[in-house]
Design a protein around this nucleic acid. Structure first.
Lengths: 252, 252
DNA sequence: CGGCATTTTGACAATCGTCAATCAGTGTGG
DNA sequence: CCACACTGATTGACGATTGTCAAAATGCCG
């Protein structure tokens, strides 16, 4: 299967073959982590940079009262902590959702890399900026959208992000997120998530079979949730002027 | 009055006198902007980096239905868009809340600066990472905290951030935020913000005279909102309470 | 088959939003 | 100095969304 890191970063910079070769080399040594395991915990002082190559993970914070807020999802090609070594310690935790293939890169390697390959450096910058934008959009969703549209928006975002790294078809993807997880993501109770999902299903906007989510008419769901993908800063978007929309290698 | 940029960045790196001199020089030329004016709009392609030297500003996004979500506040010493030139265009807007002194720095100057003064480069990195952490914490607040604690948490954060740049006393600061602004920040209606503010006042946790907010007992407000300043990554940290409850949901 | 996580349901309560009116503060012009 | 206009704050009544509790159904896995 194609390298999600390269697929992703190509949206952020014009990588040359040389750059891709370097990235491919870096991602050749992976470590397998089981589902529902912490990768990093709040308070840790990570020494190397982690990257999800396969599987789902998520950032979260626990409150003293035991409640949990999930602040973002990591899909193949996403970095856990590209720059946290600058901060003293992690202010949140990261855990796997499914079994994951994780790459661990020593901090110095990243430093050298960015010094030597400016296009890669730029792409990494781009990736962190997009992460921020995604967090901001989650805030917008939680603050302004009612539960059904918020949920729909979230599902649209995952669709697009997974498509960008070749992990989703036109209309469906693996969706290993529990309703409890969803609640902690959207700031809703599990019960309300359940009812909201049912509503989307009844309206024919989504289908959920096992752990596979299908969105029969993505445009309909996007319209319903007023989804505007501009904050993902991807190329080959529908609503953007796009010089070269070639994603020639994405076909498995 | 002392330079808020230097005060702020000193929390992120050990700046030498030389570094401070450079930063002082940069911030010597400011532009005055009136209250309630857009600094940058969604869709713009900023060419230079902006920095708030005096006054308040905020990031926001508008939805098609006209609703607005404020995603963060900029206080003296904060950058508007340290790295956005890497992304094609702004995915959100920034507007002033009060009259502001703004510094505009050409992108190349920043590039040169970071190449030449590694401590400054590190400090700028630090600043952007803290910004992210602040956004994540807002998400936690909105998702998990009831209105009164969410509001209290927000006020605590502002207190600490303003104190870090010498713009707040031990117990009070200028608070030019409208109740409508507050609603768009916290994801609440104006009416509910009003009633929540009253509750905090009735409980003696805050006082609001004109545009001056006073927190008679900051520790009380922090306790009430379970405010843990670790995500601000400031030095001079007073309280190092453990943030995590012992919850086992995320596995391991 | 039995055990466990997850999903689903129902009944009920609390938080929070909406609408619409009133009040207070501020600044302006006559 | 006061009438006026305007923005922002406050209040009351009511309704909608969402949360809580508790139980039952479903699905998955050894």
């Amino acid at each position: 299967m194609s390298n999600p890191l390269i697929l992703r970063l190509q949206h952020g910079a014009d990588l040359a073959d040389e750059d891709c070769a370097v990235l491919a080399d870096i991602t050749s040594r992976t470590r397998e982590v089981g589902p529902r395991e912490d990768l990093i915990r709040e308070g840790d002082k990570p020494e190397h940079v982690r990257l999800i190559l396969e599987g789902f993970a998520f950032r979260y914070k626990m409150l003293p009262d035991g409640s949990r807020q999930i602040t973002g999802y990591l899909v193949p090609g996403d970095f856990c902590d590209l720059h946290v070594w600058i901060l003293g310690e992690m202010d949140h935790s990261i855990a796997t959702l499914t079994r994951c293939s994780v790459v661990e890169i020593p901090g110095e390697t990243v430093t050298e890399l960015t010094a030597r390959y400016p296009r890669i450096a730029r792409a990494l910058w781009w990736a962190t900026l997009v992460d921020d934008a995604v967090t901001r959009e989650a805030l917008v969703s939680m603050g302004q959208r009612p539960a059904d549209r918020q949920l729909a928006h979230f599902l649209c975002e995952l669709l697009v992000r997974l498509q960008a790294v070749g992990r989703a078809s036109e209309t469906s993807y693996e969706f290993p997120v529990t309703q409890e997880d969803l609640g902690d993501t959207l700031g809703l109770s599990t019960v309300h998530v359940n009812r909201t999902l049912q509503k989307l299903r009844d309206d024919g906007l989504i289908t959920l079979k096992g752990k596979t989510l299908t969105i029969p008419d993505p445009d309909a769901l996007k319209r319903f949730s007023a989804f505007n993908p501009n904050y993902l800063h991807l190329r080959s978007g529908e609503n953007k002027t796009d010089p070269r929309g070639n994603d020639s290698r994405s076909g498995a």
